[in-house]
Design a protein around this nucleic acid. Sequence first.
DNA 1: CAGAATCCTTTACGATACTG
DNA 2: CAGTATCGTAAAGGATTCTG
Lengths: 117, 117
Amino acid sequence: MPEFLADCRARQGLDLLAPTWNGVLLWALRDGPCRPYTLRRRVGGISPKVLTETLRRLEAHGLVARRRYREAPPRVEYELTPLGRTLLAPLKAVGDWAAEHGDAVAAAREGADGGPG
Amino acid sequence: MPEFLADCRARQGLDLLAPTWNGVLLWALRDGPCRPYTLRRRVGGISPKVLTETLRRLEAHGLVARRRYREAPPRVEYELTPLGRTLLAPLKAVGDWAAEHGDAVAAAREGADGGPG
DNA sequence: CAGAATCCTTTACGATACTG
DNA sequence: CAGTATCGTAAAGGATTCTG
């Protein structure tokens, strides 16, 4: 393990945000608890398998909590943990950057390979 | 393309930071132009193929510029573009988050699967 | 509805060897 | 030293099907 990687602490946070759906799901949960079905509709285009995988991963990292209500019928909800909530700040920082510089990157891409792809 | 993904603008920035070496290389270039060989030693553990791939990708996105000096012997240097420089802020935001909450995530992981892995 | 199981494609990344 | 070429691995992600 090269020392530089350790010095560049960002990797530890990036590993959490890199998987496509991690950030999206974190963001989708920012306003409070949400049921899987609602989550699926909200983010759109995510398969049940990937949804479960991602949620499990987030749970294992202590960013999301799973709550099971023993009602009739049984209900499941996911919500951000206090730790997961702290990740919203850097996530927003990246989002704000994209909002401001996204066009410039897209323009550079077009110039580079002749199209947005 | 689900509209939520577009709403969650962070993805556009995350796509730039997600590949393992993107952020590391951007960070390694923060102090100024650097030659490939120096870059390799600085980040450590990156193969020539991956270094080139990553640099080309960064270049295609307008984040890094390649300069070739026609000296004897020819010299090549890479440096951040003004656009690439703006990405350092959100990258640092993620790094700062990791520095502060990294331990909590590691602890959650241990609790989840019995070991740091 | 929640989510597990199976199959398949893509791609980041690594190790090596080679060329200018 | 800069960069390319080839081969191989692992993991993310997508589609579909099935069960409680």
